[in-house]
Design a protein around this nucleic acid. Structure first.
Lengths: 117, 117
DNA sequence: TTGCATGTGTAATATATACTACACATAAGT
DNA sequence: ACTTATGTGTAGTATATATTACACATGCAA
């Protein structure tokens, strides 16, 4: 699997083809970081940035923040907070679901969506 | 709610009533940290220690590591890893379950346990 | 009554995290 | 041609994280 940097570089370049304003410098500007910093992140010279910065990058590049965070090895703090409120319950659930196939989890999600508790 | 330090101090003192070997110094020894450090953690002078150290404390004090970690505001890295492998899927699930009552989550766990996928 | 164990104060340190600032060479636009 | 924008190299820094080392006063135990 490719790393965080490759992924966002490719996403940015894809957007740049249609819209010149997606240069590294301008994206860095919108994200609120130094161009040199973004450059190093994209090339994997530096580690992925902080959660807050990743979320901003996701917004600017129209990417899914949870996925970007995951590629950076980070879990968004709102999800953490959800688990930490009922640690035993969610720990059990997650360990159970660890080996479940995607469709099994999806059906659980759907089931809960129509939640009749 | 009380903080991490209070919680482990009380757990330790409870054990110490039955078994003198649960002095701060000896517990620190078994955990593998300096007594002065554990002392400060217990009193909240220092922040809770690293994940690895919390897990050792949990072992020594016969406490649930997930709960101890949660009190320290940390999510165990094995649970993180589970989520990070399928971030979108689990992000959706967790956000759905955020407001679900405990019994609803428990029934999902049970359901998945007998999983027939 | 002295000697070991107990808990705790002060000070310092090592490592990681998350960046910034500046300079420079190349390429593109007018 | 000229200026403007582009990506990147080098160097440095601020803050947080996770801990150790040493010293000291009090208490219990033999």
């Amino acid at each position: 699997m490719q790393h965080f940097g490759d992924y966002i570089r490719e996403a940015r370049l894809r957007l740049q083809e249609e819209d010149r304003s997606f240069s590294l410098r301008q994206v860095a500007g919108r994200v609120g970081i130094e161009p040199a910093y973004l450059s190093k992140i994209e090339r994997g010279v530096f580690a992925p940035p902080s959660e807050a910065t990743i979320v901003k990058i996701a917004e600017v590049l129209n990417e899914d923040a949870d996925v970007l965070l995951a590629m950076a090895g980070k879990l968004s703090s709102d999800l953490q907070a959800i688990i930490l409120q009922r640690p035993k319950l969610f720990a059990d659930l997650l360990r159970q679901l660890k080996k479940a196939p995607d469709h099994a989890i999806l059906s659980v999600v759907r089931e809960v969506t129509d939640g009749d508790w």
